[in-house]
Amino acid sequence: MARARVTLADIAARVGVSPKTVSNVVNDSGWVGAEVREKVLVAIEELGYRPNLAARQLRRGSSGVLALALPTLAEPYFAELASVFVDVAHDRNLTVLVSQTGGDRAREVEALDGVRLPAIDGLIMSPLGLEAVDVQERRRDISLVLVGEHGERVAGDGEHHVGIDNVAAAAAATAELIAQGCRRIATIGVQDEGPTETSRDRFDGYALALRQAGLPLDEALTGHVHEFNRAEGAVAVQRLVESGAEFDGLLCFNDSLALGALYALGVRGLSVPEQVRVMGFDDIADGRYSMPPFSTVAPGREALANRVLDIIAAPDATAPGHHEVPFSLVLR
């Protein structure tokens, strides 16, 4: 037989106070003395009380639940981003439901329209297939914040987007390689098809830094990929080496590409950092324990999550558009 749900009245009876007093403690509202509050909290723990979320939603007009729609959880950056969102939301007494869209436009539209989702207070999405018209014509009127470079294009001036300045970040990463003595810096991550906003922004930053340093932009030092993963990084570096291109620095458009690049450099007998200095992007956990180590760009995941949740909490307090969060270089 299922155990009966513990109620506020049960807690009140245990402590010898009114259900209203227990409600004030549970909802952190009203005034309750420290001694009584402690007794109520002890009783809640002992009796195993759990709030009725459906009833709370009816009372408050909110669910305390957010949805986070990401292209994939197989890529470390997105998995770590989801983890940060869950933790930051928990500190605000919010729950995050994570959905994987595969970067498919139809699935992203379903998330926009709330298909297969319960009542939520807001949606955070990193889209790859979505178009601006999909956002404008969405059927569900809830707080929406977009992240990711494709998300910035889709958001335009009418929706909220939060993220770093990718051009500036890539320029800073390239400038650091130049400061360390690199003069022939190759890139890994140029994409010719699909959602290419991330690739374009980071390449633009790379080209900007070369130009500012008076270094030529050499097409022979461009590594093309289909996706940002380790296998593509390894193959791109292998092609560069086999082409005869000489390079002493490598800017990879994410850390997974950098890890694949390190593998290919090792197979070819090229030492890091003695012969080639490597810079990644995203500061994923795996990269922090790589041997040899490589530097990277930290995209400020916690700052991003906090900014997004601030917007969802008060969407009308800030004008729609791009909201920038800081990045930093992690040198190893």
Rank of each mutant, 00 (worst) to 15 (best):
A2Q: 02
V6H: 02
T7L: 07
A12T: 02
A13H: 04
V15L: 03
G16E: 02
P19S: 07
N27S: 13
V32G: 01
V32C: 03
E35P: 03
K39Q: 14
I44M: 11
E45I: 11
L47F: 07
G48I: 04
Y49E: 02
P51E: 05
L58P: 07
R60P: 02
R60E: 09
G64I: 11
L66D: 06
A67P: 07
L70P: 04
T72V: 10
L73F: 06
L73Q: 06
A79P: 08
A79M: 10
A89D: 01
H90L: 14
N93S: 14
V98Q: 04
S99K: 09
G103F: 07
G103H: 05
R105I: 12
E108M: 05
V109R: 04
A111Y: 05
L117W: 01
L117P: 00
A119K: 02
A119E: 01
D121A: 01
P127K: 03
G129N: 00
L130Y: 00
L130C: 03
V135W: 05
V135R: 09
V135H: 09
R138G: 09
R138D: 10
R140F: 04
I142F: 00
L144V: 13
L146C: 11
G148V: 03
E149C: 01
G151T: 11
G151P: 05
A155H: 08
G156Q: 02
D157Q: 11
E159H: 10
H160D: 10
H161K: 05
I164T: 10
N166K: 04
V167K: 05
A172K: 09
I178S: 14
R184H: 06
A186Q: 04
Q191C: 08
P195G: 10
T196M: 08
R200Y: 05
D201T: 03
R202K: 13
D204P: 01
A209W: 06
A209V: 06
R211E: 15
Q212W: 00
P216C: 08
D218E: 15
A220V: 06
A220E: 13
L221E: 11
H224Y: 13
H226L: 13
F228Y: 15
F228A: 13
A234Y: 09
A236P: 11
Q238D: 14
R239D: 12
V241D: 07
E242R: 11
S243Y: 01
F247D: 11
L251I: 10
C252I: 12
A258Y: 07
A258H: 05
G260T: 06
A264L: 11
L265W: 08
L265Y: 08
S271F: 11
S271W: 10
R277S: 15
R277W: 13
G280V: 12
F281R: 15
F281P: 15
D283C: 14
Y289E: 13
Y289G: 14
Y289N: 10
A298H: 15
G300N: 07
E302P: 10
N306H: 15
L309F: 07
D310E: 15
D310K: 10
A313R: 03
A317K: 07
P320V: 05
G321D: 10
G321Y: 02
G321F: 00
G321K: 04
H323L: 09
E324Q: 12
